[in-house]
Design a protein around this nucleic acid. Structure first.
Lengths: 332, 332
DNA sequence: ATGAAAGCGCTAACAA
DNA sequence: TTGTTAGCGCTTTCAT
C-alpha cells in the first residue's frame, strides 16, 4: 500500500539505484532519466522512508535536544534558536524536557542515542560526573548550550556569566550602593547561578564592601519569591538599596515589592536584571538588564553541532558570545 | 564497533530472536535464559537500534509536533503538556515551528511523515484547504490542539473560545460599560481570534450595544501595539471605558497605556484578558482573565493521539475542555 | 521455549 | 550513466 523506491523503479523502468540517485540529487543521472523518474515519483506520490534511509546510511538527520523545561521562556528562546538553525541545515529535532533531573537526563541521552540521532544539544545546569561519563561515551557529538563545562571536554556555547554579573553589580556599586542584595533561583539548579554568586562576591570584595549573607537570597526563582524577598529584606537592619536579580521575573517581583513598600525605583531602590527577555520592557520602570542572548546561544550551539557532525575542524570548541547591558530605567 | 543484537545473541548462546524477545519483554522466555541474555546486554552495553526496530516493526514511537512558535509562551506551555504525556506513553517528539506559515506546515507534515512518525499533534490557526487535504492523506492519526476544525474531520482539543469570550465581554457589560474595545493580534493568524471577535460582536448585539469598528483593533499582538492602541483609543470621541484583550501581553500593554494616560485600572478603565499565563499576576493590578488551559490542551491532545495510534475507539474526537474566568483586579 | 529465515526500504560499493 | 547486490539491525512469522 505504501509506495516504495522499488515501485518507482519498476514504473520508471530503471533500477532502485537510479531512483535513489535522483532522490538524493546525485549528478550521475541522465537528465532524461531524471525527468522520467521525477514524474513517476510525483504520480505515485512517493515519499522516501527516512527510517530505511537512516538504517542504510547510518544518518538520521535528526538531532536530540535536551533542555530543562520548554515552558520556561529562557529555554524556549534557546530552543527556537536551535530549531531554526537545525532547519536551515535540514535537521529535525527531538525535543525533551529533563527538569534538570540527572536521572532523566541520563535516560534521555540513552533514548536519543538509541534513536540514532546524529548529534545532541544539551542544556543542563550541572554536568554531573555520571552525566559527564555518559556524554563521553556518546558515539555522536554533543554540544552544551548555556552550560559551562569546567573540564572543557565538551563543545559549549555561553556568555561569560562571571564577567557579566561583575559588570552588572559594578554598575550598582558605581552608583554608590553599599548594600546590594543578590536574588536568584535555587543555586543548585538554576542555570549558572553559582557563577553569578561568585561574581557578586568577588566584585563586592574588590570594592571593599562586606558580603552580607543576609542579602543573598536563593529561593525558587518565582515572581512571588522575589516579592517576598523584598518584603523580608526591607525589614532587616540596614536594608539593601540595590538588587541584582538573576532573571527578569525576579526583577519584576522586586520592583513590585519595592512599590508595595512605598519605594520608588530607581530613585529609592535600584534593580538590575540578568536576562533581558521581552518581559524587561513590560514593567514600569523598564528593566536595566544584562542581555542573555538565548536565541543566539541556541543557534550558535546548533551551528557548532553541524560542524562537529560534519567532522569539520573547529577552531575553539568552547565559544563565548559577547554580552552587554541594556540600560533602561530600573537603574539610574 | 557498535554492539548489535547479533553480538548479544552470540555471546549469550541464543538466537537473535530470543534476544529480541527479552528486549521487548516477551513472556515466552525461560527465566534462566532471560537472565543470561540480560547479563550479556549489560556487559556489552547493548543499546537497541531504534531505527532498525522502526523499519522492521513499522513503529517509531515518535510523534510529530507542529506548532507556530515555541518561543511564544502560549505554544511552549502546550508543548510541555504534549511532551509530558508523550513521555508517559513512551513516545518522543519531533518538534518544529511553522510560524503559522501554510507552506512550512505542508513541508513539515511531509517531512514528519517521511520520518515515519506514529502520529502528529498540530497547532495551527488556519486549517486551509491545502493543509486539510494533506492531513487527510496522512497515513497516521493527527490531532489538532487549540485549533478548531470546522469540518469536524480531525480530532481536536479546545475550549469554547466563542462562549469564553462572550463570558468575558458580558462581565464588562454587566459592570455597566457601553464602550468596550476589542484588542487582539492579527485576525488572520492569531489563534482563534476570529471566534473571539465574533463572540464580541454577538454579545454586544445581544446587549443592544452598537458595534463600533473603531473599537476593534487587531495589530501585531505585541505589548507595544497595545500601548499604542490605548493611546489611539484614548483620543477618539467617546473613548472606551473597558477592554477585552486577546492575550495577557496585550492586557499588560493596555494597563500601562491607561496608567500612562493618568487612568486608573479598574476604577477608570476595566480590562479583561484571555490567557491567564503567569504574566497575569506579574502586573499591577493583576489581570482578570479567561483561563486558557494550554498545558491541558496539549496534554489531552497527546492523550487522544495515543488512543488513536492504538486504534482504540474514541467517544468523541472533538473534545472541549471547560473554561472559567479567574477574577483578579483589572475588573471590578 | 527457542531458532531459522524472510523481510522492512533504503544506501553504497562494485560492476558493467 | 546505470544496474546488481549485499547489507543496515531489527521484528516477526513459522517451525520445531
Amino acid at each position: 500500500m505504501t509506495v516504495t523506491i522499488y515501485d518507482v523503479a519498476r514504473e520508471a523502468n530503471v533500477s532502485m539505484a537510479t531512483v535513489s540517485r535522483v532522490v538524493n540529487g546525485n549528478q550521475n543521472v541522465k537528465p532524461a532519466t531524471r525527468k522520467k523518474v521525477l514524474e513517476v515519483i510525483e504520480r505515485l506520490e512517493y515519499r522516501p522512508n527516512a527510517v530505511a534511509r537512516g538504517l542504510a546510511s547510518k544518518k538520521t538527520t535528526t538531532v536530540g535536544v535536551i533542555i530543562p523545561d520548554i515552558s520556561n521562556n529562557i529555554y524556549a528562546e534557546a530552543a527556537r534558536g536551535i530549531e531554526d538553525i537545525a532547519t536551515m541545515y535540514r535537521y529535525n529535532i527531538i525535543l525533551a524536557n529533563s527538569d534538570q533531573n540527572e536521572e532523566k537526563e541520563l535516560i534521555l541521552l540513552d533514548t536519543m542515542l538509541g534513536k540514532q540521532v546524529d548529534g545532541i544539544v544539551m542544556m543542563s545546569d550541572a554536568v554531573t560526573p555520571k552525566l559527564h561519563q555518559s556524554m563521553d561515551h556518546s558515539p555522536v557529538p554533543i554540544v552544551l548550550a548555556g552550560s559551562v563545562d569546567e573540564s572543557n571536554t565538551f563543545a559549549s556555547v555561553n556568555i561569560d556569566y562571571f564577567q557579566a554579573t561583575k559588570d552588572a553589580v559594578q554598575m550598582l556599586i558605581d552608583n554608590g550602593h553599599k548594600r546590594i542584595a543578590f536574588v536568584s533561583g535555587p543555586l543548585s539548579y538554576t542555570i549558572n547561578s553559582h557563577y553569578k554568586l561568585e561574581a557578586y562576591k568577588t566584585v563586592l570584595n574588590e570594592a571593599n564592601i562586606e558580603v552580607d549573607e543576609q542579602l543573598i537570597i536563593a529561593d525558587d526563582g518565582t515572581y512571588d519569591s522575589a516579592l517576598e524577598a523584598f518584603e523580608a529584606l526591607a525589614k532587616i537592619e540596614n536594608p539593601p538599596t540595590a538588587f541584582f536579580a538573576g532573571s527578569d521575573e525576579l526583577a519584576i517581583g522586586l520592583i513590585h515589592g519595592a512599590q508595595d513598600n512605598g519605594k520608588k525605583v530607581p530613585e529609592d531602590i535600584e534593580i538590575i536584571s540578568f536576562e533581558n527577555s521581552k518581559l524587561a520592557r513590560m514593567v514600569r520602570p523598564q528593566l536595566t538588564s544584562v542581555v542573555l542572548p538565548l536565541y543566539d546561544i541556541g543557534a550558535v550551539a546548533m551551528r557548532l553541532l553541524t560542524k562537529l557532525m560534519n567532522k569539520e575542524s573547529i577552531e575553539d570548541h568552547s565559544v563565548i558570545i559577547p554580552h552587554r547591558i541594556e540600560k533602561r530605567n530600573s537603574v539610574k
